[in-house]
Each structure stands twice: as C-alpha cells, then as structure tokens.
Design a protein around this nucleic acid. Sequence first.
DNA 1: GTACTTGCAAACTGTTTGCACATCA
DNA 2: TGATGTGCAAACAGTTTGCAAGTAC
Lengths: 145, 145
Amino acid sequence: MTLASDDEMLEVLRAEGKRITPQRSLLLRVLRDSDGHLDADEIYRRAREKDQRISLSTVYRNLNVLKELGLIIELHLDQEHHHYELRDTAEHHHLICSDCGRVVEFDSRLVGKLRDQISEEKDFLITRVHIDLVGLCSECRDESD
Amino acid sequence: MTLASDDEMLEVLRAEGKRITPQRSLLLRVLRDSDGHLDADEIYRRAREKDQRISLSTVYRNLNVLKELGLIIELHLDQEHHHYELRDTAEHHHLICSDCGRVVEFDSRLVGKLRDQISEEKDFLITRVHIDLVGLCSECRDESD
DNA sequence: GTACTTGCAAACTGTTTGCACATCA
DNA sequence: TGATGTGCAAACAGTTTGCAAGTAC
C-alpha cells in the first residue's frame, strides 16, 4: 500500500545528498508504524519512547526535509496544527468525526472526475486534491440520541 | 449569493443576546466588501482604514463570535493561518494557485454525490465538506514555460 | 445600572532558527 | 576532514486571555 519500504525511503534521502541519521530512520519507522495523521508532538512522543535523546526541533526539521522530498504529506485536518503521514501510492482523503476526532481514510472515483471537471472548467493544472469530510461517526451519532 | 444582508446578520447577533457594536458592524462590512478568504491580519488592516481604533484582539474575538453563530466560515487554505469569509447560501470550495496564490471558488454536482457516497459507505453523518484543489492557474502555467 | 465589549499588554501554542558541538560519508 | 545534522534555548507568528475602562441596551 505504501510507496516504498523504509530502505527505499532512506535511499531517496541518500540520493538527494541528505544523510541517514538514526533520528531520520527512527522518524520513518514511527510514521510507518502509525495509522497516519500524527501531529508533530505525537511523533515526537513516540520517537522518544524509542530514543530518549531526540529533540522536538529535530522532529520538525526532519518532517520538513521529508516533506520536501515528497516522502511524507502534511495535512491540515481542520485543526490548529499540522498532521503528517507517509506518502501513499493510493491517493486518499479524510473523513473526520467532529465529536471523537476519529479519522477514516477514503477514496472514490468521483474525486478524479471532480478534478477533471474543475480543471477543465477553470483552466487550472491541478496538482493536489485535499478533501476533508467532517461529521459524526456512527458511534458518536448513537450516543448523542 | 450571500446568506443575508448585514442587517440580517446583525439581527442574528441580537437574537443571540450579543450586542451590536460599531466594531462588529465594521467587520461584517469589511467581509462583505471583500472577495472572501481574508486572513485575520488583512481584515484588521482593512478595518483600521475605516476606524483607526479597532484592535487586533477585537478582530479575533469577533471572528470567533461570528464563526460560532455560523455567520462566517473559517478556512484552512493550506496555509499557516486561517482565512475567513461570509457564509454563503451556495456551498463552494477553493481552487488555489500554488504559484500566485490566487483563489477561485467552485462548486459541482459531484461534490454532493461524493458526500452521499462516502456517507453511506462509511456510515458517517456528514456535516461539512472541505475541498481544496491546488495547482497552477493558466497564467502561471504559461509563465513557467 | 449592569452585563457585555473593548483596547492594551502579556501569555500561550505550534513552529523555526542561531549556535556550538557531534557525526555521517 | 568537512559539510550536514543535532540538541538546546531563544525567537517567532498567529492567536488567546486578564484586566481595567468603556458602552449598548
């Protein structure tokens, strides 16, 4: 499902003249072991569980490096801070429960259709599509009755 | 195109037990006279052109009030800070040029279809849909050739 | 009159940066 | 060895808040 193994990702770093440091390997591992959409602080917390010494600024710096190399994606999930996830071959979007905060990924043919339609209508070359659907998941909906 | 006139919006404030202050009227006027998607600082700048004394914290406080009353919408246009616009009867989404920053609004039948499809598939009650398409507008595309 | 609102300055949060030291290649 | 990366603390940007004074109703 995911673009590349950790090794392949490390290879991208090397190819771009970036060094492979224990911190970078660790961050990639944390991201891979997660279910996606972690914020910087959560990534920092999980990384520290494995290596006490990593610093928050290193986390931020490397998230930016990985983002520039296209290995991860920065999300703006209707929150005050950013979320990050490994870049995936399968484009997907997010369905967010406004009550419990749960995030579910989805995709649909309609997304590509929409993109094509608007691209033509507005004469844009569309490179990225962000879709967030916000609502109540079935559990939270039941509770609120 | 827009939900209500300024007077109607002020009426909503009154109905909620909020006071109608010159600052609030001014902010609504600034939002209405704009093309949408202004950030707080720009709103502050424009408001100050009309009334020197308004403060940035008043701007923030009132944007939050208006947001809670549903009179305006807060956007997260892939930037570090928020943008605001008057709530519109016609739901619309944003097409953003990653080069010049231009923002174009759009809507499409496909959005409702997508919403219905995912709602059913994932068993969510979907209340809000945010779509940002990012790309190059025709002018920026021509320049980059 | 009084609860709500304002302006100011100070606090807060998420993120970035300068610098000296450490480290990958 | 030399360029890159790290940790720390300090800076920064956007936003929120405490408080005393002002104002809508």
